[in-house]
Design a protein around this nucleic acid. Structure first.
Lengths: 207, 207
DNA sequence: TAGATTGTTAATCGATTAACAATC
DNA sequence: TAGATTGTTAATCGATTAACAATC
């Protein structure tokens, strides 16, 4: 009975979340697919199609109740529950992510960082302890961790991701510039910054 | 005559670049679309289609010459030319990006950072000076800058991106959690980290 | 020449857009 | 009731995959 939701739809959901949050904060009570379309840049038709994958949240002749729709989107996205996170690699990127307070705000709670650099092990970053990577196993056994952010060098990313997954981590957010090979049950998102920059370079050149 | 290349194709190019670079470094001389497919995960058919958008780089019965193909991909991506970059916002993310030596390696040369925090203005990050944002205009007039990385808070992202564009910047790499409205001639890539994390949250929940 | 693999056309699949009946 | 706007089906568009002739 479960309807298959396409990845394209899922990738638009966070954007709906963002715009609806802003609308709610601005005190807007109702919105039509047409108005949302003008703001967000998707067609009104697509917006209605997207929401109707999950249920009929609107009302003919009226539109959508902003607050109600936002709650639905939050539920669909799985927000409003807490996630435990470890950051593997406390270099430039890992420590920058640790300092990002937006994650905590949405209840992605960063429990620990791991690194092999003795100079930072046992230090705290934004109040979160950096552990030595050799302690990762024990930490993952003792603590139920949902997500690992992979901020290590390319050479160890695969190995550490595998270890994390084997010890209960269900989601991998990969910032390393390699593609990870993990069981298909693992949820993985990649942020390949260099790939993104190269895409820009392509378009810059062709102008 | 110019064939329209779809964005889907362009987004795969950096991945080809990455795998071909690795193959070349491993001393591999030739590769077939089938072998590349096994590695990279796209179908062989798609790989051949992708390359044939830009020319016939292969040879029937043989495959593709790795080094030659890599050079073609580099050219297509507009690598091998230099780009000048400024980073707007020298907080956690801006300074992490300034410390990333991969950008310089691919000739994206970071010329300056800008911030309003007096505590870091005139300091250097990885050898690159942090200027006060009030000096941005003059800097952009005196220096030809191709790309601006937007690492500011959401509230000033639009304003600073507009200023950059009006003073000659052609590409905007946006890390702020807002959608920027810029002339369509501007090349823009967005890295909405929170959006990406929410997508993960969706899939984690539905398991 | 025989075998392999490309380049390219045609078929399929999936996602987006358009249209409109249902209904608030 | 009339007007507005959704929910949903059908049409279109675009991207991926399959097939195979060309050719090295």
């Amino acid at each position: 009975m479960e309807k298959k939701i396409s990845k394209a739809v899922v990738r638009r959901l966070p954007k709906y979340h963002r715009y609806l949050t802003n609308l709610k904060e601005s005190g807007v009570k109702k919105i039509s697919s047409k108005e949302l379309s003008d703001m967000i840049g998707f067609t009104a038709s697509q917006i209605r199609q997207d929401f109707n994958n999950f249920g009929g949240f609107g009302q003919q002749g009226y539109g959508y109740n902003v607050e109600e729709l936002l709650e639905e989107v939050k539920g669909i996205l799985g927000l409003g529950q807490e996630y435990s996170v470890v950051i593997l690699g406390a270099g430039n990127l890992g420590s920058a992510l640790a300092k990002f307070n937006d994650f905590e705000r949405y209840q992605f709670n960063i429990k620990a960082l791991f690194d092999i650099d003795e100079a930072i092990v046992n230090k705290k970053i934004n109040g979160i302890t950096v552990h030595h990577t050799s302690e990762l196993d024990e930490f993952l056994i003792r603590n139920e961790i949902d997500i690992a952010f992979i901020c290590t060098g390319n050479s160890v990313a695969q190995e550490l991701a595998e270890k994390a997954v084997s010890l209960g981590v269900r989601g991998i957010w990969n910032f390393a510039m390699v593609d990870l090979h993990l069981p298909s049950s693992v949820i993985m998102e990649n942020v390949h910054l260099i790939d993104n920059l190269f895409t820009m370079s392509y378009f810059l050149k062709s102008k």
